[in-house]
Write a protein that binds this DNA or RNA. Sequence first.
DNA 1: TAAATTTGGTTTATAATGTAAACTAGTTTA
DNA 2: TAAACTAGTTTACATTATAAACCAAATTTA
Lengths: 96, 96
Amino acid sequence: MLPNLNPLLHNQLRLSIVSLLIGLEKADFTFLLKETGASKGNLSVQINKLKEAEYITVNKSFVNNYPKTECALSPKGIKAFEEYVAGIKKYIDPNP
Amino acid sequence: MLPNLNPLLHNQLRLSIVSLLIGLEKADFTFLLKETGASKGNLSVQINKLKEAEYITVNKSFVNNYPKTECALSPKGIKAFEEYVAGIKKYIDPNP
DNA sequence: TAAATTTGGTTTATAATGTAAACTAGTTTA
DNA sequence: TAAACTAGTTTACATTATAAACCAAATTTA
C-alpha cells in the first residue's frame, strides 16, 4: 500500500520553500519570494505554517533599516522532508 | 526555478490512482478502493475528475449481475504523469 | 417471501485549504 | 511633504477535498 504523504509538505509552495532551504543554510523572505514566484501574502502564510509545525525557524531582524525575515530548516523539518521524499518516491517510481 | 506541479496529479488519492494504473493495464473500482484505502465517495469523485481531464478512460459494465467500473490510463494521462514525475523530482532531488 | 444485508457505486453538504487583494508600518526619494 | 518603494501580515474569498448520506439492484436470511 502506498504511504500517506505529509499534507504540510504536499503543497507546491511549502514544498518549494523546504526544497530551497535544504540546499541553503538559510534564506530570507525576499529571496524565497523571487525563487518561488509566489505572492507575498501566500508566502507569508506558508512560512508561518511551516514555523508553527516547527519545520523551520524564523528570525526577524532589521538590516539597513528594513525588516528582514530569515528562514532555516530545523532537524524536524529535515526529517519530515526526508520522509516525504521516501514516500513520494513510491508513487513515482514504477520499479522500486 | 522549480516547475509548477500539475494540480490534478498533485493530490494523494488521484496520484495513487494514476500510480497504480501505470503498473496495471486496468483496474476496477473495488480494487482501487482496497489499494488506496479511500472512501467510496472520494474515490468516485476523483475517478471522475481524472476522466473529465481525459487522463483515464472509464468503462462501465455488468459482471455477475453487479456493476463494474474499470479504469485505464490514457496516453494523455501517461504523459501527464511522466511530466509530473519529472517535475516533482526537481523538488526532492538535491543533486539533479 | 418479506425483511435485512451486501455490492457497487453517486450525490452533496461541509470542512479544510489555498490564494491574492487589501492592509500595515516604516523608508527613501524627489 | 507627498509619492513611491520595501517588507511584510491579515483576511476574505474561492477552490478543493472528503465523507456522510443516499440510491438501485442483487443476495442472503429468517
